[in-house]
Amino acid sequence: MSTTRRTVATLSAVAAAVLASTAVSLPQAFAAPAPTARMVPVQGHRIVGPATGIRHSDSTNWAGYSATGSRFTSVSASWVQPTVTCTSATTYSSFWVGIDGDGSQSVEQTGTEADCSGGSPVYSSWYEMYPAYPVNYSDTVKPGDHFTSTVSTDGSGTFTLKLADTTRGWTHTTTKKSTTASLASAEIIAEAPSSSTGVLPLSNFGTASFTGATANGQPIGSFSPDQMNMASGSTRKATTSSLSGNENFSVAWNHS
């Protein structure tokens, strides 16, 4: 079942929840609206140096690490769900692992969300086979929950997307097909989601800590990955730390 990931601007959180829970039984003319925000391939990607070893780049929507230059069939990491600090503004942030999206127009990914709506935090979890819309899981997500996730493929178009909240004891394993996946990158990312009009304001998530970041079963640092900061023009929106132990890092919020 495809469900609404978050409220549109004209709906209250309660109304959106009612729509999502009744989407299956409603006639087509009254179906819940499509999500207004989604995770998309890296945008505005600009390498700022160096040319060898771990690279550094700025992106308008991604912060974290992305490995390229090989054929990737698995990516894994763990993280602690950040706590968002909300104002009256509606803002978004997501934390995920995935294959593709850096240099390709498909992404196979799963992760969590930390948004602000009407001054209140909204936490959720999801998977997405971009360019298809994301699908929410219904399980409770709270700040401080420990997550572990793996996206893997058999290399012939079948993907397994696994997301586990080890704090609350739930796990989702979703199997999907893709005929467009290029298997060209593997990444562990904090993202400012996008809508049809572009990148959305980034929630103040403080710091997101990722551990055990691997690609093809090896520490992601083994692939001389791209260390990506999120920026809009001269404004730094999120900063990615150096790798520790070749597979651990954090992303710090700087600006919406």
Rank of each mutant, 00 (worst) to 15 (best):
S74C: 04
S156C: 01
K177T: 14
K176S: 13
V141A: 02
V122F: 07
Q109R: 12
E128Y: 11
S93E: 10
S88N: 14
H172Y: 11
W170R: 09
G144A: 05
T87N: 15
S76H: 09
V151C: 11
N136A: 14
D100R: 09
V80L: 02
S152K: 10
S125N: 12
V97R: 01
S149E: 03
P82L: 10
V141S: 00
T171W: 06
E113G: 13
S156M: 05
G157E: 07
T87S: 15
S117Y: 15
P121H: 12
N136W: 02
F95E: 03
V97K: 05
G169E: 01
S178K: 11
S125F: 06
T140V: 13
N136R: 14
S93T: 13
R168I: 04
T174I: 15
G98F: 01
S156V: 03
S138T: 14
L163D: 01
E113P: 08
P134C: 02
W79H: 02
W96H: 03
Y130L: 06
D145T: 01
T150D: 05
G169F: 04
V107G: 06
V141M: 03
D115I: 00
R71M: 05
K177I: 02
K162T: 15
T140Y: 00
S138M: 10
T87W: 09
H172I: 06
A77V: 01
G111K: 05
S152H: 03
E128T: 07
K177F: 11
F147A: 00
D100W: 01
S106P: 01
A114R: 03
D100L: 05
T166C: 03
G155A: 07
D139E: 15
T91Y: 10
V151A: 12
Q109H: 08
Q105S: 15
I99E: 04
G144Y: 00
T174P: 10
S94T: 14
S125M: 07
T174K: 13
G155M: 04
G103P: 11
S156K: 13
V135E: 07
V141L: 03
Y127S: 12
T91L: 09
